[in-house]
Design a protein around this nucleic acid. Structure first.
Length: 506
RNA sequence: CGGGGAGUGGCGCAGCCCGGUAGCGCAUUCGCUUUGGGAGCGAAGGGUCGCAGGUUCAAAUCCUGUCUCCCCGACCA
């Protein structure tokens, strides 16, 4: 009997959950902020638009970073570091680039403060001859450097990645999704041929797709951006697009084919085998802490965050339950054997032996933090050589034998990882529609949201009109289009080769 | 930058309309009882009420200015 109904919900818990469900359906933003807060990921900083990433959030980012870094190195890349400050003149060398970023740059104009009755003010005498920009992205300073690194075809390709922080002075910010300062990686590569650079662009897009789906368990659509959504200075921008639970799209990563734009702007040439001097071909690609936002909005439920096992800083938490000192000793010793076994098998496990919280509190806390698996052990479990295993994703609980626990935990973590992906994918597919008329487009967007496949005539004018009238944008022209086939543009009626992917986006 | 809301112990809030020297819940510390779904009781500590002016015998409260945060738009990874 005990094993069948080990716990009971109390009134308070039911009330709390009801309130949360209500708040989520009415205000997704608040729900998102609650998750960030309860999972102890980040908080607002005293500086407008910035955030303090707390240890939980940083541990998650570090795991993501490590997985990505491994993938970058496996594809032949190396890490390097370039300056935070960029001379203002660099930014103006590539015409589209300056247009794209000029409106959101932090500018350093002075180098000193001076004390003035109790406070400080900017010393006017310290005005810089040339202002410095805090990098919004590093193409310019990197290509200025590449000029000195590249002379011969033997110097190519250069395959470099940088982990850094960048600043974009955004008008409106949201934790993780759009902060003024954010952490990211930016890859910058230089190649001898166009083909090589194009291959690199797509190779890195595939790395991002694989990371999003295999590690984050976040299904994405890969494709190419339209001209108006293209990165400032790129010839072609490829992206991975994810769909959040509220039906809005999130651009989760981009990979740009930069052509010879930056090589021209910074005069980066190499002497080829044939003796000719040629301009270098370039790519850049990046993902940011925005991915944490994507992770939260893809998997979380009303009990808090859900982290896929591959990325979870703690994969399994062991919660001991006891009344008296002799029970405590027995249970903790029992717990130690479990922790030792899991550790030896490479599982990231933590024994929560804090004495000042009751088990119920710990359960709720670990659920909010998104730990994939919980093992609860009490005196009876110790006696019967059992454990109670609880999955974070499904909230299912079961009694398991102690014997062979390590193997079962490893299997279960794998199962959770793939189940998370499958259920996220199912959710996304349910929120994906294909339409043939503008009326239907508007109706679906209004009532259901999500991804909408529709025919488009390929012009920026039509794209802009749809954006103005519905707030939906073309997320990408997908590579693998299950809704392909020719048709007519939903607005202009002109012929269209394939449907493109629309959604309201973050 | 436009529209709306809000800044009061660590966190969440009440008090403001109608000025009179700051209160509640959670958290913290100590004690006892507890521990299988966010424990109970008792006691204690902690706040120049975002900031700067002004009105007044007296300002969390009224007036002016200013900064910040949240939500909705325009911009963006």
């Amino acid at each position: 009997m005990f094993n069948c109904v080990p716990f009971q919900l109390n009134d308070q818990l039911i009330t709390d959950m009801a309130q949360r469900i209500t708040s989520r359906s009415t205000d997704y933003s608040q729900w998102y902020l609650d998750i960030v807060k309860e999972a102890q990921l980040a908080e607002h900083s005293p500086v407008r638009g910035c955030m303090v990433i707390k240890p939980n959030g940083m541990a998650l980012w570090e795991n993501m970073r490590e997985a990505l870094d491994t993938m970058f190195k496996d594809t032949g890349h190396q890490n390097a570091y370039f300056p935070l400050f960029i001379p203002k003149s660099f930014l103006s060398k590539e015409a589209q680039h300056v247009e794209g970023f000029a409106k959101e740059c932090a500018v350093i104009t002075h180098s000193r403060l001076k004390a003035v009755d109790g406070g400080v003010e900017v010393d006017p005498d310290s005005k810089l001859e040339e202002e410095l920009i805090v990098r919004p992205t590093s193409e310019t300073i990197i290509w200025d450097t590449y000029r000195t690194w590249i002379q011969s075809y033997r110097d190519l390709p250069i395959l470099i990645n940088q982990w850094a922080n960048v600043v974009r002075w955004e008008m409106r910010t949201r934790l993780f999704l759009r902060t003024m300062e954010f952490l990211w990686q930016e890859g910058h590569t230089a190649h001898a041929t166009k083909q090589e650079a194009e291959e690199e662009t797509l190779r890195m897009l595939e790395v991002y797709r694989s990371f999003a789906e295999d590690f984050m368990a976040m299904p994405v659509i890969t494709g190419v951006k339209t001209e108006s959504e293209r990165f400032a200075g790129a010839e072609e921008t490829y992206c991975i697009e994810a769909l959040m639970q509220d039906g809005k799209a999130l651009q989760a990563g981009t990979s740009h084919f930069l052509g010879q734009n930056f090589a021209k702007a910074f005069d980066v040439k190499f002497q080829d085998k044939d003796g000719d001097h040629k301009l270098v071909w370039a790519t850049s690609w990046g993902v940011s802490t925005r991915l944490i936002g994507g992770l939260i909005m893809t998997h979380s439920d009303d009990n808090g965050l859900v982290i896929p096992p591959k990325l979870a800083p703690v994969q399994v938490v062991v919660v001991p339950i006891y009344r008296k000192d002799d029970e405590k000793e027995r249970v903790l010793t029992y717990g130690d054997t479990i922790v030792d076994e899991l550790k030896s098998m490479g599982v990231r496990v933590r024994l929560d032996d804090r004495d000042n919280y009751k088990p119920g509190y710990k359960f709720a806390e670990h659920e909010a933090a998104g730990i994939p698996l919980r093992i609860a052990i009490g005196p009876r479990d110790e006696q019967n050589q059992n454990v109670e295993l609880a999955r974070r994703d499904t909230l299912e609980k079961s009694i398991q034998q102690r014997e062979g626990l390590g193997e079962r935990v490893k299997l279960l973590l794998d199962t959770i990882q793939s189940d998370l992906f499958e259920s996220a994918k199912q959710r996304r597919d349910e929120q994906t529609s294909a339409v043939d008329t503008y009326e239907e487009f508007k109706r679906v967007l209004e009532k259901k949201g999500g991804f909408i496949y529709a025919h488009w005539d390929g012009t920026s004018e039509t794209e802009e009109q749809i954006k103005q009238e519905t707030k939906a944008t073309i997320r990408c022209i997908p590579f693998h289009n299950t809704n392909s086939g020719e048709g007519a543009c939903i607005v202009s009626g002109k012929p269209s080769k394939q449907r493109v992917l629309f959604a309201k986006a973050y």
